[in-house]
């Protein structure tokens, strides 16, 4: 039993760091645009295929891994900027209801999903960048995630644009008065979130030896979203902590055959519990409603 627990913990930390990276994207976009971007999961698919494609071009070793990471992050950012400008920005301009943005996000996710579905039917084997044991891989994954999170937090807290992003997510109209371009900030947020998902995709490829076109919606699916909500949607450290917690719980549940088939129920029940007990999440702040 302890073996199972230990495996679950290690895997949980590893998967948790992937979930954390993706959850950051969900939480940042929600914080600044008040929108649940259901299309976010698809960036995993994009990142996975980009790194697969690059690896088949330039080979798979630690050096090319860095290149693949950069390429994946770049392309994900570019795709997210394009979708934001084409699909979400016009809606924001016209002040449509939130459900419209939701449906549009669903439409975008369908499009990306089906594009990959049409093009790549077979299961692809992940590029083998590194040859590490499971434990070492997990450590590397955690290190990558933590370094990224630290850099991002520094950016958000110390740089002018980071502060401007925080200001925009808090009070868009006052931010406008300061000369901050709201739309640019939102686009920047989308891009950062997507780039992080791209990074997460490469990390995923490191851990899981194969993937297919549905990896964004089936394998990863809504779990990072659950992590973001549990940790506190809108809060960056919340997304990270939520990612690790959910990852650990998931992997421990999967490690024991008695609980394994109940894993989704367990995870979503945690989501429900958190929403009932503390809706703003573990690290979220309670925002009272002004009448």
């Amino acid at each position: 039993m302890w073996n199972n627990l230990y495996n679950g913990l290690i895997n949980g930390l590893g998967m948790g760091s992937i979930y954390a990276l993706i959850a950051i994207g969900y939480t940042m976009v929600y914080g600044i645009a008040r929108m649940i971007n259901f299309a976010h999961g698809e960036f995993i698919t994009i990142g996975a295929f980009v790194s697969y494609g690059m690896a088949s071009l330039i080979g798979a070793n630690p050096i090319t891994m860095i290149i693949c990471i950069i390429a994946s992050m770049l392309i994900c950012a570019i795709v997210s900027i394009i979708t934001e400008k084409l699909a979400y920005y016009p809606l924001r301009k016209r002040n449509t209801k939130r459900i419209t943005a939701l449906i549009t996000a669903i439409g975008v996710s369908y499009i990306i999903y089906s594009l990959f579905n049409i093009q790549f039917q077979e299961i692809k084997s992940s590029p083998k960048f590194l040859n590490l044991s499971n434990t070492n891989l997990t450590i590397l994954t955690i290190v990558i995630t933590l370094v990224t999170v630290v850099l991002l937090t520094l950016f958000i807290n110390k740089t002018k644009f980071g502060k401007a992003m925080r200001a925009t997510s808090e009070n868009p109209s006052a931010a406008k008065l300061m000369g901050i371009n709201n739309d640019a900030m939102i686009t920047l947020t989308f891009a950062i979130g997507a780039a992080l998902a791209g990074l997460g995709a490469v990390v995923y490829c490191l851990r899981i030896p194969y993937f297919k076109f549905s990896v964004g919606s089936d394998a990863i699916g809504l779990i990072p979203f659950v992590a973001a909500v549990v940790g506190g949607i809108g809060s960056l450290p919340g997304a990270v902590i939520g990612g690790f917690i959910i990852g650990i719980i998931q992997q421990i549940s999967v490690a024991f055959p008695e609980t394994s088939p109940w894993t989704p129920a367990i995870l979503y029940s945690i989501l429900i519990l958190i929403l009932i007990i503390k809706p703003t999440g573990i690290l979220g702040k309670s925002i009272g409603e002004k009448v």
Partner: peptide
């Protein structure tokens, strides 16, 4: 602006 509208979390 009306109501101050400072950035509360900054």
């Amino acid at each position: 602006p009306e109501g101050r509208q400072v950035f509360a979390n900054l």
